[in-house]
Nucleic acid binder design. Sequence first.
DNA 1: AAATTGCATTTTGTATACAAAATACAAAAT
DNA 2: ATTTTGTATTTTGTATACAAAATGCAATTT
Lengths: 214, 214
Amino acid sequence: MIEHADLSRPIYIRLKEMILDGDLKPGEKIIQEKIAETLGVSRTPLMKALLTLENEYLIESIPRRGMFVKTRDLKEIIDVYICREAIEGMAARLLATYKNDNNTDALKKCFTPFLEDENIDSQTYTKADENFHKLLIKLTENAPLDKIYFFSNIHDKVIGHGLVRPPEETLEEHFKIITAIEQGNPDDAERYAREHIRKSRELLIDQYKNHKSE
Amino acid sequence: MIEHADLSRPIYIRLKEMILDGDLKPGEKIIQEKIAETLGVSRTPLMKALLTLENEYLIESIPRRGMFVKTRDLKEIIDVYICREAIEGMAARLLATYKNDNNTDALKKCFTPFLEDENIDSQTYTKADENFHKLLIKLTENAPLDKIYFFSNIHDKVIGHGLVRPPEETLEEHFKIITAIEQGNPDDAERYAREHIRKSRELLIDQYKNHKSE
DNA sequence: AAATTGCATTTTGTATACAAAATACAAAAT
DNA sequence: ATTTTGTATTTTGTATACAAAATGCAATTT
């Protein structure tokens, strides 16, 4: 049996699930007593979990008024993509600078299942994409860099709504990044990583504009 | 005792002060009951403050064993500087891209007091330097970018130990960044911002090596 | 009918109580 | 003398209690 010394940990995981799955909807107020009862815990460890989620940008707290599932407008999603561009770009640079076969192998492995696949399953690819981007950060072994990468939450949420570019387009980009890292070319690695995210960002803006003018 | 709608807020500020001032020393265990009594509050709002500090990387928590003032080794400080390089570089790029006179004026104002000063006071300049780097981020109005910039804490702490380059060297660099922003040159702005931090990082490594071989 | 006020209810923020785990330390064993 | 074991103390983690603020709603006023 896995023993949890800290109840707030599984609560945090559960709540995060609920938010990302949409069980708790953006803007919805989190009534502590209610959630606490649902989860069968008291408000104390729940509060700890909520504070962690607040720091991960999934919840917004207004003193004396309550905690709410964070709503996001386009501006903020764009801003997140800008952050990711800076962070993942740097991560790719670091990996290329201190290149290492284990790392490139691990990165490649994210996408090998799709290399000979004619009909890529969107769901599976999305998951692989998430893994790849998280791995890129993890492999740097730069703890602060990893800590600030809670953006992946928002990224996952955006992806969850089907707002991604097709695998035909991104698969190649991913391998361009990996190859640059493999060849120990920091400038290329960073440039490709940034381009990759910038393109998604631009698409998001376009999609929004089109949607708006319908 | 302090009065506020949210007690954890002033507690947080107070504790942060105590950590940055060295009243609470790195590695020191934070005995909740003790601190709570000292501040005249209960453990509940104290815990909230401590969790915020944990998320700001100033405190480290080990479940069931306690919370400790974070210790830092060179590797971690270097890692922070790498993060700053990515983040501030992007900030400079953004400001140059969406250039605006108010912004450049505000940035210039940080250092105008030192322009005709022959004998720059180190303490005052250090404060100005801190302001400049925080302002660079703030002016982007990119909320997530600002949120992840808690590194300034660590930066301030390092600076507090006197580990900075002299004003004669950095003043010029600061103005190179500002000028690039003013001229709307994103590539230069980012490059100069990154160089600026990279140089400090390299100096830190040198200082460490010298110190070690003494 | 719309706006305002006052009261009951809900909900948050803080303090406190209590159980379980960690720690410190002394006594016993090797 | 050093290690081990058992016990008292401290400290954390969780639940609960309670006061103060926010909210909802009905009665009253305009």
